[in-house]
């Protein structure tokens, strides 16, 4: 049981082939991610990174193989239980995905409102998480008034406000300058230290080389490298 608890994500020989696509997007991938790990997912465009993340979120189902997330076999998880699974995961994207007509505070509160959290809880935890991501004092700004780095902090606050077990970040620094990127990475590192598992797909070589965390590399759907304390690519 203890072993089960430690593994938050497990892929067993997972292959994913999309309809009308000759080549599988992901082919025979097996791996485990332990609780509290920080994992970089690297590879060129079309290598299967996004498919990997979509499978973890159960937005897609594998063609063959089994996936376990947070102790649950996704293949046996009925549709109506998917929302409960997603409440244990937070997601951050390259394009932030904030609601432009809501303030910073409302954007973060929205994530709690729609899962039915009571107002009293929302009033308490939203300022806490905004303080954590370094946006205290900007609660009433609209996303359009913020810099890219600040908008991504709002998105991270929204992903983290429900204290998820896993945080999935799909190129979170893709739209940011190096300075803002470093700020975001520091924030993700801080969140990782609270025990949250982080899986981050990225193209940013400097960040991967600097952080020295576990690196999983995909190439044309195959898992070609799984290295703890790795760098972005082999030096040639």
């Amino acid at each position: 049981m203890a072993r089960c608890d430690a593994t938050v994500i497990r892929f067993d020989n997972v292959t994913k082939t999309y309809a009308k696509q000759p080549r599988p997007a992901l082919q025979d991938v097996s791996l485990e991610v332990e609780k509290g790990e920080f994992v970089f997912l690297v590879g060129s465009s079309g290598s299967g990174k996004s498919t990997f993340l979509r499978l973890v979120l159960k937005e897609e189902r594998p063609s063959t193989g089994n996936i376990f997330v947070a102790g649950k076999d996704l293949g046996r998880l009925s549709n109506w239980k998917v929302p409960a699974l997603r409440r244990q995961m937070g997601t951050v994207f390259q394009d932030f995905r904030l609601l432009p007509n809501k303030t910073v505070r409302e954007n973060v509160a929205f994530a709690l409102e729609v899962i039915g959290k009571p107002t009293s809880t929302i009033r308490k935890v939203v300022p806490e998480v905004l303080d954590l991501v370094g946006l205290a004092g900007k609660e009433d700004r609209m996303p359009g008034e913020l810099s890219g780095g600040e908008q991504q902090r709002v998105a991270i606050a929204r992903a983290f406000v429900n204290r998820p077990m896993i945080l999935i970040a799909d190129e979170p620094t893709g739209n940011l300058d190096p300075q803002n990127s470093v700020g975001i990475m520091k924030l993700l590192d801080r969140i990782n230290r609270t025990g949250t598992t982080i899986i981050m797909a990225t193209h940013d070589q400097a960040i991967v080389d600097q952080m020295r965390k576990r690196v999983i590399e995909l190439e044309q759907g195959h898992l070609v490298r799984d290295q703890s304390r790795g760098v972005y690519g082999y030096q040639h």
Binding site: V82, A84, R86, Q88, T91, L99, I115, R158, N162
Partner: peptide, 17 residues
């Protein structure tokens, strides 16, 4: 679709969406 996309990601139930 922007709102509903976010609702799905944060785990809102179908009932809510």
């Amino acid at each position: 679709r922007r709102e509903t996309g976010i609702m799905r990601l944060v785990g809102a139930s179908n009932f809510y969406i």
